[in-house]
Design a protein around this nucleic acid. Structure first.
Lengths: 161, 161
DNA sequence: ACAAATCCTAGCAAAGTGCTATGTTTTCTG
DNA sequence: CAGAAAACATAGCACTTTGCTAGGATTTGT
């Protein structure tokens, strides 16, 4: 029942954007360095987030990303849906037909209730709230990050929250 | 974020037990037939449930399973913990050290809140409630199940809720 | 003794996850 | 206008997890 790195890394990216002064751009490469996530992988993740429409991207030199909407209007249900693909705890909740089991499915009601519960929690949780909740200073880590030497031969990335 | 078949099939097994008249035994093979789950696989799942102590097993001819405690005293948090291994949405919530990230982790508080939320829902959901919630008649399906001919060569099991 | 049930271990095919590699396109800068 | 820096895009691959099978050992009723 673990969430994938896609969701976790995507969240971190969004939190960086939310912590940014409005109007400014944040580059993907910089976030990848600071969060110690593979840049290529983070690109994929950010791309999955694009259809939601919460990102504003500027291409070319000096480009980067910014939030297209205020953080208070971005809820976690939407974000999770795009990053994780789906939230439902069992597959047949999302694929129309109520599974080919004869008669009524004994556990369906339970899974539906659990699904509703999760979604409600996520829907009422905004990026704004998350950003306020975490009282870390993004600048502190990045200041030291410059001194990091990449270990040649072999990925140095470690799974994070 | 899907739950595995272990948890889903395990739940179905427990629901069968809960629907059984108290004092009687239910055989694993029979449940497997009626629920169309591989008997061998269901055995593994039931075994994972044993350490919880909610099952009473009788070996030998005429043996079977029964609930060792009333269904009203069996909550889903315990059941899920044993079937799924862990519930936590991210790994570092269960492995002591708060991940090697420099400074405070920006998303940790959120994952903890989500974890608490899920657990609370599951803890307050008892097998009794689930059993009452599902108004299907387990006997109806099993009556017809006798006529099933197993398809030779190739598993005929299909994933269920 | 035999059969019927629960117990137990190892292994394996398929799917999913996490990431790398290799580009293409856009845009700013010298 | 050349080049660099950024976002955009696709394919593939090693590793892990999942879902199940095979084959047996042990216990107990008839």
């Amino acid at each position: 029942m673990r969430f994938s790195t896609r969701t976790r890394y995507g969240l971190r990216f969004l939190l960086r954007l939310a912590a940014q002064p409005p109007g400014s751009l944040l580059q993907l490469g910089q976030v990848a360095r600071e969060e110690r996530i593979s840049p290529g992988y983070l690109e994929q993740i950010v791309r999955a987030l694009k259809p939601l429409g919460i990102l504003k991207a500027v291409r070319g030199t000096g480009g980067g990303y910014a939030l297209a909407r205020p953080a208070s209007e971005i809820n976690m249900e939407d974000v999770f849906l795009h990053l994780e693909g789906e939230i439902a705890p069992v597959r047949c909740l999302t694929t129309k037909k109520p599974c080919t089991h004869e008669g009524q499915c004994s556990t369906r009601a339970f899974w539906q209730a659990l699904d509703r519960h999760m979604r409600e929690f996520l829907r009422h949780c905004t990026l704004q709230e998350m950003s306020e909740q975490c009282n870390n200073t993004p600048g502190a880590a990045s200041a030291r990050a410059g001194g990091q030497r990449p270990i040649p031969g072999g990925s140095s990335y470690v799974e994070l929250h």
